[in-house]
């Protein structure tokens, strides 16, 4: 009975040093951690999301394909969804209210052929807004998403002057009822974030793409342009597409087909 003898010698409050018991506890803890954490890791893997402490990676290039053949004229579900998701409430002044996405109705003046297409920040690989921003507030993440750092934007509007797509809005008045995930502020410039908060938490889609799908059009396909197996890459292989203002050679992350 050496173990009992040893235990009998212990004073009150003293722990037992038991290698077998410690081994059991370690195994149990590892198993518990595996049960709790592994599904999370697996989910992150499945969704293509990244852990909060992990930096955006250049292995991914987020982008979109907009198929104008499927985009219904008069439908503004994508615009409504964007406004709802990002907390954009206009002040009733259309010329100064922010618009991150808008539907442009197109007409060929010669043939009369008509199209409708949503236009937002094109998330260029060579963004002019980033080039001209004096403080570096306009920046491009490694995964291709172009954003504005709300802490260093001084509101000079040079990026608005430089953007070929009219994708940026200047905030002309005080704001209220903002969404916690979407910081905004009077006197700064903003634009489509490609729903970066959704992308980072692993939703794998954007509000506009979701709304378009829910409306039964599926004109907006979101995904990783670097992944040959992603839905957007497969679709881009199947149908011809263009960059808007391709003459500027900005290598946009948003492509259009049907025009």
């Amino acid at each position: 009975m050496p173990r009992l003898q040893a235990r009998a010698r212990l004073g009150p409050g003293e722990a037992v040093s038991d290698p077998e018991r410690r081994g059991f506890l370690a195994t149990a803890a590892a198993a518990l951690a595996g049960v709790v954490i592994a599904p999370g890791i697996r989910l992150i893997e499945i969704a293509g999301a990244r852990a909060p402490e992990e930096a955006a990676s250049a292995r991914v290039r987020w982008g979109m394909l907009i198929d104008t053949a499927k985009c219904a004229s008069g439908c503004t579900e994508c615009v409504k969804a964007c406004n709802e998701e990002n907390g954009l409430h206009g002040a009733g002044r259309p010329r100064t209210d922010a618009q991150w996405i808008r539907k442009i109705d197109l007409k060929d003046p010669r043939t009369g052929r008509q199209h409708s297409a949503p236009v937002m920040c094109q998330h260029c690989a060579e963004p002019p807004c980033v080039d001209v921003c004096p403080t570096g507030a306009s920046f491009k993440r490694a995964d291709g998403i172009v954003l504005v750092d709300k802490h260093t934007c001084i509101g000079c509007r040079y990026c608005v002057m430089a953007c070929p797509y009219k994708a940026r809005s200047f905030i002309h008045e005080n704001l209220s009822e903002q969404k916690p995930a979407v910081p905004r502020g009077k006197g700064t410039v903003e634009g489509c974030t490609l729903c970066v908060h959704k992308v980072d938490r692993g939703d794998g889609t954007t509000a506009c793409a979701q709304a378009c799908k829910a409306a039964g059009h599926e004109a907006i396909v979101f995904g990783d342009l670097n992944d040959p197996q992603s839905a957007v890459s497969r679709r881009l292989r199947e149908i011809p597409s263009i960059h808007l203002r391709a003459d500027l050679r900005l290598d946009t992350g948003v492509r259009y087909s049907g025009i």
Binding site: D105, K107, V119, P164, L244, R245, D247
Partner: peptide, 12 residues
Amino acid sequence: IFPGWQEQSSFF
């Protein structure tokens, strides 16, 4: 934004 096309939108 779409050279050669007539454009119209809520963003003027």
